[in-house]
């Protein structure tokens, strides 16, 4: 290995190699749990992926019984996530609009921006405790899917604000000025020029945020409580949800219950991965021109 240019000393070469091995190893180390998690969930969960699981609730089914399903939980999760999005998305998008279009570098905008960052770090259990303290203990409402949605809203807002903010910043300034120059008022410019331009990006952000809050368990345990029966009304009484379904079934020592927990996990991961993939697809397929 010696040439006229001399060679890199063995010590340096070994260090370089060792570093490369470490980097590859680090990546492999991250892939192991990912593959293991996905494999385990599929292997254990596929057994109960049957009609009963999607068609029935756990009403009257004990832990040791076979059969039973997560119908009530799936309905609950879908309703809760829908309500969460309906509340969180407008607030978050408007907040982002304020930060990008109105706030500038003013003190209020900087404060809000800082606290949005802080909000991303709020533990989900604290969001649950807050809704418990406010909605249930102070206002005296009962456990309900809606209370769960309120808790999830707190977790969803900051992610959507950040995603929207980034997308709005990508909208070229010339576009706004072109619209202003035509005499279009600011709010119409924002609603009909800026937001539509950023739409796919915002949609991607919302889908990723939905995928994230959908798997939250802790805040739901404190706010929607728990039921084995179907409750289609998210505004009254305890409601099911996929995460709490898994939590309940997993804490039951009977194998039939454990199997249901795995299938619940498989369905939950399936929905989340679908949302993730769809978000990727939207981001790629409808990428705005000129980027």
């Amino acid at each position: 290995m010696t040439s006229a240019f001399g060679s890199v000393s063995p010590a340096r070469r070994i260090k370089d190699r060792a570093a490369a091995v470490f980097m590859w190893g680090a990546f492999a180390l991250a892939v192991i749990p990912l593959v293991s998690v996905l494999w385990t969930v599929v292997a254990h969960g596929v057994g109960r992926l049957d009609g009963d699981f999607f068609g029935h609730s756990m009403n009257g089914v004990a832990g040791r019984d076979p059969g039973g399903g997560a119908y009530h939980a799936i309905i609950g999760t879908l309703e809760q996530v829908l309500i969460t999005s309906a509340i969180a998305v407008p607030i978050a998008v408007l907040t982002a609009v304020y930060l990008v279009e109105y706030g500038g570098r003013g003190r209020l905008a900087r404060t809000i921006s800082f606290f949005v960052d802080v909000m991303t770090g709020i533990p989900s259990i604290v969001a649950g405790l807050f809704i418990l303290a406010l909605w249930l203990l102070t206002f005296g409402f009962e456990y309900s899917g809606f209370a769960g949605s309120l808790a999830l809203t707190i977790l969803m807002i900051p992610t959507v604000v950040r995603a929207t903010e980034e997308m709005l910043k990508l909208v070229p300034h010339e576009l706004r000025e072109a619209s202003f120059a035509l005499g279009v008022p600011r709010w119409r410019t924002i609603c009909f020029v800026v937001l539509p331009t950023a739409f796919t990006g915002i949609l991607t952000g919302v889908m990723l945020a939905v995928a994230r809050v959908m798997g939250e368990t802790a805040p739901l345990l404190l706010t929607i409580f728990f039921t084995k029966a179907i409750n289609n009304d998210p505004f009254s009484g305890p409601q099911g949800s996929l995460p709490t379904f898994i939590w309940d079934q997993a804490s039951d020592p009977n194998q039939n219950a454990i199997n249901r927990a795995w299938t619940g996990a498989l369905v939950l991961i399936g929905i989340i991965m679908l949302l993730n993939l769809a978000a990727r697809f939207v981001a790629r397929r409808f990428r705005p021109a000129g980027r």
């Binding site: 290995m1 040439s3 240019f5 001399g6």
Partner: peptide, 20 residues
């Protein structure tokens, strides 16, 4: 060729070349 040695010779390490 740098004098008579090929920079792109088979046993040459680019890292050593950049030192030269």
């Amino acid at each position: 060729l740098l004098d008579d040695d090929d920079l792109y010779g088979p046993s040459v390490d680019p890292v050593a070349v950049r030192r030269t």
